[in-house]
């Protein structure tokens, strides 16, 4: 009893401190967002506390603001093109890393994954110098190339993780049933990679939508949404910015919810946990006998 007492007494203040600490961290993280959302409905603009006279005026102004909508559209175009490029190169790269054996594979892997840790400022600066040398006019094309290449590594890691979990016996079963390598890839491999591919696309989309560093160096005449917002902030904060930020926040939230629902809906796969005895890789390229 005495022992238990002496152990219990100090835990009470400790728990309180822990609670305070956690609350402070969460407040620091989420209070600004809450304020941002709240003031997007504030009739008196950014000034004044507590906010009163709730209104949708700022949203009305926002929807009438052509410059913002141009920026949104521009960013959407950019993000979609970045998804296509990143997946178009990232999926083959992931396949090569998962199942092909070739000299320099380690170097290849590091090179593919490097942009993940490379600061955006380096990527942006070097690309802008390259485009200057090649005499390419900065604009949507340079932005798309910048975002697309920088995000290949994201697509590669996501798809690679999916491939690692894939039951290879399924691909063998498909070959066994008469499907060639190409049919097996489209009918079995890709459907089983649906989730990682969608996940990668969503991730690339959000990363591209709020990218600033790379965009800054590669931007032409038109602004992306984050750069448009940043440009306006230099002229002073307006509740319109709060409104557009609130919409971005809700959009991100919806994306996350959508992603989680997709994940929980997919039924647990058969036989995934029981791995086959060690066997050679099924090669999906034209060469059916991969070098050992």
């Amino acid at each position: 009893m005495i022992l238990a007492d002496s152990q219990q007494r100090p835990t009470a203040p400790r728990a309180i401190w822990l609670l305070l600490h956690a609350s402070a961290v969460f407040a620091f993280l989420y209070l600004p967002i809450a304020v941002l959302i709240l003031y997007s409905f504030n009739g008196q603009g950014v000034g004044g506390f507590p906010p009163h006279h709730l209104t949708l005026d700022w949203y009305r102004i926002l929807f009438a603001d052509a410059a913002i909508w141009d920026a949104v559209l521009y960013s959407l175009k950019l993000a979609l093109a970045a998804i296509v490029i990143a997946l178009g190169f990232g999926i083959p790269a992931a396949l090569a890393l998962d199942r092909a054996n070739f000299p320099g594979k380690t170097v290849f892997r590091r090179l593919v994954l490097l942009p993940l840790i490379l600061p955006g400022i380096i990527t942006g600066l070097s690309l802008s110098m390259l485009f200057k040398l090649a005499d390419v006019r900065l604009g949507l094309l340079t932005l798309v190339l910048g975002h697309g290449t920088a995000l290949i590594s994201v697509a590669t890691t996501e798809v690679f993780a999916g491939l690692q979990k894939l039951d290879r016996a399924q691909e063998e079963a498909s070959l066994d049933l008469g499907a060639n390598y190409w049919q097996t890839f489209w009918r079995i491999t890709v459907p089983n990679l649906k989730l990682p591919i969608i996940g990668a696309a969503l991730l690339i989309f959000t990363l591209s939508m709020d990218e600033i560093a790379v965009s800054f160096f590669l931007i032409g005449r038109d602004n992306t949404l984050p750069l448009e917002i940043w440009g306006r902030l230099r002229r002073g904060i307006t509740p319109e910015i709060n409104a557009v930020s609130t919409i971005i926040f809700l959009f991100s939230l919806l994306t996350i919810v959508f992603w989680y629902r997709l994940r929980s809906q997919s039924a647990p796969d058969v036989g995934m946990e029981l791995l086959d005895p060690p066997h050679e890789n099924v090669n999906l390229s034209t060469n059916p006998n991969p070098a050992d």
Partner: peptide, 29 residues
Amino acid sequence: PPFRRRVNTVFQNYALFPHLTVEQNVAYG
């Protein structure tokens, strides 16, 4: 290559295609 052999296999852990129904699995070949 395996897909040209008139040989079919029943795998140890069945290797059924999880994204296809029973019927679609059987119809695959």
